[in-house]
């Protein structure tokens, strides 16, 4: 079982604007958290803080290893999707998990396709497959269903449910439902 995610007194300063302060929450293993709020309320910034991509202005974050998927999916146009995902899997030490993850996100058939030929939905599914491959207990997803069709959203919902059943956690910035069962809710802004 992994350790829970604890966030205490978190504040985020962007430029000279305080996006939010005194944010406290806890996500237990198997739990999930919806980050909601209007555009610009700091959902993405909170995810970047959790991912360690921004230093917090104040507060403390403790938790297990995490995997992050932002708006940009970091796929190089000239490389094939298989080569790209293998590269990241190698960095994560998860090459053996990659085939299952690619199958779970329905991108296994795209392994030989150069990334510049992928649609935005396919790229997003590839990004999610990278999250599945990482083996991290905590998934940080920024609007993961953006650009996904209904079938792909269902695949994501299944993957998240399986991840939580295994003691994993999901924190997602969302507009509306993304298929997480009974998530906690945090409203920003």
């Amino acid at each position: 079982m992994s350790e829970p995610l604890h966030v205490e007194g978190l504040a985020c300063l962007r430029g000279d604007r305080l996006l939010f302060e005194d944010v406290d929450f806890m996500v237990a293993p198997g739990g999930a958290l919806h980050l909601e709020g209007p555009n610009g309320s700091g959902k993405s910034s909170l995810l970047r803080l959790l991912a360690g991509l921004l230093p917090p202005f104040a507060g403390r974050i403790t938790g297990p290893e995490r995997s992050f998927l932002g708006h940009e999916v970091a796929l190089k146009p000239r490389m094939t999707l298989g080569a790209e995902l293998s590269h990241w899997a190698r960095l994560d030490g998860g090459l053996d998990r990659l085939p299952a993850a690619m199958a779970a996100m329905n991108v296994a058939g795209l392994a030989e396709v150069p990334c510049r030929h992928l649609s935005s939905g396919q790229r997003r599914r590839a990004g999610l497959a990278r999250v599945l491959t990482s083996g991290a207990a905590l998934w940080l997803l920024d609007e993961p269903t953006a650009g996904l069709d209904t079938a792909s959203s269902a695949l994501l919902a299944q993957a998240m449910a399986a991840h939580r059943a295994g003691g994993g956690m999901v924190v997602a910035a969302v507009h509306g439902d993304i298929g997480l069962a009974s998530p906690q809710l945090l409203r920003l802004g």
């Binding site: 991912a51 991509l53 995490r66 940009e72 999916v73 970091a74 990278r130």
Partner: peptide
Amino acid sequence: DGTLDQLAAR
């Protein structure tokens, strides 16, 4: 394209 973010997040 977010590559540096992915590296930093690791």
